[in-house]
């Protein structure tokens, strides 16, 4: 392992190059995350910010932290975000109309003020004790030393946080869970019912839509032998929406089939 931070305060050239490429790109991505209209674009930019942060951690010799940042945040948390965001569709974008007049200047002022406060506070923050340096902290290896700290000094907060997370997950499950009022038939029961029911009509599957040789779109019901439309051949959603075309217009008798004779 190359020790990049051997001399404190001095940055080696490769690290400086990496910083000046990734740093601005991270800041741009973070700003873009706030400013783009589509939620999924925002999520991608946030994922990029997380990855650049992870690369910075790795460059600072916090290899484990950097990799875990990608696995946990980019791989799991952001992926779950994306999972939800994908359901909103490609075309949807945030509406930019103000519902409360004058909200935008107030929000911008508050954001800049809060940001300034954070920067000034964090800039002046001290650890309260002397730094020991990476070489001392990582005597037995980065992962081993982290594990020692987590499972000895910080075992109580660690366990409390995990209990909190489990409680949150259980709570979400309890809130989202609902008791079935009727038992859902299993695949086996459904299959048996298809053949033991009053009618054999559904035994071989529902009829497909479309009129033979004339039209095969999903919104055109198939015709039964007596010329009436087969209701089962159309999706219930289309029926409810009223998006069904009368199949009789495709009947041969309705179409002009006369052939003009040549003179």
């Amino acid at each position: 392992m190359i020790n990049l931070a051997t001399s404190l305060g001095q940055t080696q050239t490769p690290e400086a190059v990496m910083f000046w490429i990734l740093g601005p790109s991270a800041v741009l991505a973070a700003l873009g995350m706030l400013l783009v209209k589509k939620a999924v674009h925002s999520a991608i930019l946030l994922a990029w910010v997380m990855i650049t942060l992870a690369i910075f951690y790795i460059a600072q010799d916090a290899v484990f932290l950097g990799i875990v940042q990608i696995v946990v945040y980019t791989g799991a948390v952001m992926m779950l975000f994306l999972f939800i965001l994908m359901l909103v569709g490609v075309d949807s974008a945030d509406s930019l109309t103000e519902t409360i007049p004058g909200l935008r200047p107030i929000a911008i002022t508050a954001a800049i003020g809060f940001g300034g406060l954070l920067v000034s506070l964090l800039g002046r923050a001290t650890l309260g004790r002397q730094m020991v340096g990476l070489t001392v902290a990582n005597t037995d290896g980065n992962v081993q030393e982290l594990a020692k700290k987590l499972f000895s000094t910080y075992v109580w907060p660690f366990e409390v946080v995990s209990a909190l997370l489990i409680t949150a997950a259980l709570g979400a499950m309890v809130l989202a869970h609902h008791q079935r009022t009727i038992i859902r038939p299993t695949q086996r029961e459904q299959s048996i019912n298809r053949f033991r029911g009053d009618s054999m009509a559904s035994a071989a599957g529902l009829p497909g839509p479309g009129v033979f040789a004339r039209h095969n779109a999903v919104d055109v019901p198939a015709l039964l032998p007596d010329g009436s439309a087969a209701a089962a051949s159309i999706s219930a959603t289309l029926k409810a929406r009223g998006d069904v075309i009368d199949s009789r217009i495709f009947e041969l008798s309705e179409v002009d089939t006369s052939v003009e004779e040549e003179k």
Partner: peptide
């Protein structure tokens, strides 16, 4: 790297973005 195997897992989890974003876009 000392966490080489975790690195492979991390890369795999980033690779899924390709599939998921392809599906959405």
């Amino acid at each position: 790297i000392p966490v080489g195997v975790l690195y492979v897992l991390a890369i795999a989890s980033v690779g899924v973005y390709g599939i998921v974003l392809a599906g959405w876009s």
